[in-house]
Design a binder for these strands. Sequence first.
DNA 1: TTGTTGTTCAACCATATGGATGAATTAGAT
DNA 2: ATCTAATTCATCCATATGGTTGAACAACAA
Lengths: 116, 116
Amino acid sequence: MVEQQTPAEDPLTEILKAASDPTRRGILTLLAQAGPTRVTEIAARFDISLNAVSKHIKVLEQAGLVSRRTLWREHLIEVQMQPLVLIDQWFAALRSIWALRLEKLDDLLTKEQTDD
Amino acid sequence: MVEQQTPAEDPLTEILKAASDPTRRGILTLLAQAGPTRVTEIAARFDISLNAVSKHIKVLEQAGLVSRRTLWREHLIEVQMQPLVLIDQWFAALRSIWALRLEKLDDLLTKEQTDD
DNA sequence: TTGTTGTTCAACCATATGGATGAATTAGAT
DNA sequence: ATCTAATTCATCCATATGGTTGAACAACAA
């Protein structure tokens, strides 16, 4: 048995999905301000069950947005910023594709004008 | 009847959700390179039904990531970059919260060292 | 008129998601 | 030994999501 844990989507998709839930973004914010925090501690700040929070954390972990340091019973959860850079990169790529088209379009118009 | 169209989530959540689907990101990329494009034209590039694409476009539209110009039968879909800035802003905010904590932590350590 | 084209709408389906609750596990405290 | 604390695991539930197919509709082409 090779521990199949969902078909493994591409990283960007996982990151965006993980970030698209308000509760999860709340958890990230909390972790950013508070530093490494225990699961129970995190759960205390939200109005949902500890279990629900535990699941959210797992999603974030899967996406690489948080890491876990397990000290016996206590799991210290810590935010990881690096993966978010992938979002930036995607945005930048999209933007440059878009800019490129406008540029070409502009060239074309300029040329036509010159041809007059 | 006040046209209730789902409880209206916050914009950032809608944008991230919309962007978290690979097909939808594909559509955005296509639109960025090709400019305003008809629904049928878009659908032709993807290996799913026209209807599925139509639904994806509606999600993108809802999130403000594309706009629609309807010329009689033809609907011209165009990418809208502005909303993506909200993602950047969220990321920047998170990052600054995080940086602030590290800064404080650093101050604390420096102070202790001075106290030695 | 009668097609044909470009789209959405309406069902329907399988699977994913976010939540709840209860049990299981493991270690520290009495 | 027992109790309590910190977590995850296992179920279960309702709703959302992404996809399909078939119908409806409006406008251009024959």
